[in-house]
Design a protein around this nucleic acid. Sequence first.
DNA 1: CATGAATGAGAATTCATTCAT
DNA 2: GATGAATGAATTCTCATTCAT
Lengths: 189, 189, 189, 189
Amino acid sequence: MPEPVGVRQAQAQRTRSGVLAAAAAVFVEQGVQAPVRDIAERAGVGVGTLYRNFPTRADLVTAVYRHQIDTCAALAPRLLAESDSPFTALTRWADAFVEFLVTKHGLGAALGSGDPGLENLHTLMLDTLVPACATLLDACAAAGELEPGITAYTLMRAIGNLSITGPDYGRADAERMVAVLLAGCRGRT
Amino acid sequence: MPEPVGVRQAQAQRTRSGVLAAAAAVFVEQGVQAPVRDIAERAGVGVGTLYRNFPTRADLVTAVYRHQIDTCAALAPRLLAESDSPFTALTRWADAFVEFLVTKHGLGAALGSGDPGLENLHTLMLDTLVPACATLLDACAAAGELEPGITAYTLMRAIGNLSITGPDYGRADAERMVAVLLAGCRGRT
Amino acid sequence: MPEPVGVRQAQAQRTRSGVLAAAAAVFVEQGVQAPVRDIAERAGVGVGTLYRNFPTRADLVTAVYRHQIDTCAALAPRLLAESDSPFTALTRWADAFVEFLVTKHGLGAALGSGDPGLENLHTLMLDTLVPACATLLDACAAAGELEPGITAYTLMRAIGNLSITGPDYGRADAERMVAVLLAGCRGRT
Amino acid sequence: MPEPVGVRQAQAQRTRSGVLAAAAAVFVEQGVQAPVRDIAERAGVGVGTLYRNFPTRADLVTAVYRHQIDTCAALAPRLLAESDSPFTALTRWADAFVEFLVTKHGLGAALGSGDPGLENLHTLMLDTLVPACATLLDACAAAGELEPGITAYTLMRAIGNLSITGPDYGRADAERMVAVLLAGCRGRT
DNA sequence: CATGAATGAGAATTCATTCAT
DNA sequence: GATGAATGAATTCTCATTCAT
């Protein structure tokens, strides 16, 4: 009997993953405010199981997006190394961030809502994405490619807001406006 | 008894106005998602009266902001006439729009949420503010002060999104980011 | 159209009374911890109606028993005037109190549970029954018919506890034990 | 491998003891209505183990208090032998019983609630404590120190109820009221 | 035997909406 | 027209209990 315990752990892990996948899907369809029960049904589990794995909604939301947040943050140094100029890296990173937000229906709005329950996610982004963005901004500033007075947090918040899509204002529009915003950040070069 | 009907009409008008004032106040305090009952109580009327005057929440929201929307739209030609350059007029008008959005707690988020019930308000803004903004943009374009490809609707939507405030991202930040966005619109002059 | 408003008020009052009656019945059958929904169903109203009339469970419990509490309190001065001795009045009043408690299944236990939500009822009893009981105790003390150191609150609490009935310990037992307790209060006369 | 079965039995016994200790602790902190899971966690076992050993909550409650009940019962003949008078023995025994009940947060209320699931515990007390108490009462009666008509069961039930403490009615009050009750039992001596 | 993940019934509470007066 | 009592669907969250490993 090799790894008799592992079987149960693996099953639990699969359940957890299923819940995460279901939540991600439901969030895309209904937004992060979707009823807990819908997510449980989508995952094919009882609500109790969902609560066992994610005691609060914020825990669930955070878990759903944590991996992608980390990926996005890790992208910054790589782009900085690959790109011709720091500003090019910033632009590309912003595109990736927009893509992340746009595909997460309602996340931007949820983050901007000031919902106290989403403090965790807010904190997570502050702790991982803001430093990543700050690295890029610092490089831009050092290269003289940045208007003074732009902070990483504010810029990300602005990009986040610009990524709140809807009818008549889709992903392409969000990307275009973010590009315009970044052009404004670059100043007269 | 001269004009007995007129008296009743006047009373009805006063009721309607009271509801609008109450709704405006409650929206500022609680956001546009505030419970219907709170608004009715603030206005000192029954919920039935509120529903009679504004069958849907969107009707109420629209009515509340219609006057201010009209005012904002009317501002555009005036600023265009007064200002040195079309772009200056655009900048000032954007400031007025931001102020309008920022003081209406939650309106920006509501507009950006894609809530189908707010279609009316959306339409209203399309029909009044977009043309006003387009006038300014056209003037800017004619003066060579605008990057090509910026539409009035998209720009307004972007400004609206940038005006979604919260903790750590307040009115000053929104104004600053809108200014940066407009700088990006102006292009390299 | 005499009293056109009164009709609605009367209807509302009837609804309220119906809820109170239903709650009283359910409390007897299931105790004061009975589910809100059961009470609403028994009353033939929606849960919303119940919440409208009694925002918290304690409000409902209090309302159910307020009349009887008042009646019980009003009994004290009457018995004092009618009876041969203060102690006789105290004994009779205790019997009335026991009857009140015994017929309210679970009330004694609920009061004794320290449930914070029942603070209202606790307060009500403190404010009305304790003074009534204190009047009797004072009269007994003045007549030399009371051991020193017995407070109204503690005595009532004791009577309340002794009135928690169950299988094999019914109303007759409660009354007997209360009588014994009072005999102990009287001391060696 | 001598006595391989005994080892397993010993381990099972230790598990059972651990659960009992945990349950006793949790009952003191949260009352007998404490969630099953809390007890299992405190004991460091899975809930399944708890259910295997104690299929119903009543089984657990009974087992937790059985030892102390036996101890309390065994106290009666000892006190009778040691004390000057049977009534003194009864008084001391009652004090011990009150202490037992008061330190078991919520046990008195649970016993008095008529909860059918606690039938076992009820039965246990009937079978062990009632005879012990009856011995004392018989001795008192024989010594002429007892009002007629007091049964052991009813007296114990009364003492149990008087021991239901809460805010504003603590252990000292319970003890005092029990003393008063016993004084009433003694009659005019 | 022990485990603890999974289940889902049950309970509280909120609010948009209707409609008789 | 105005009223607000009544309704009940919707949602969150908690735990007792089961059962595959």
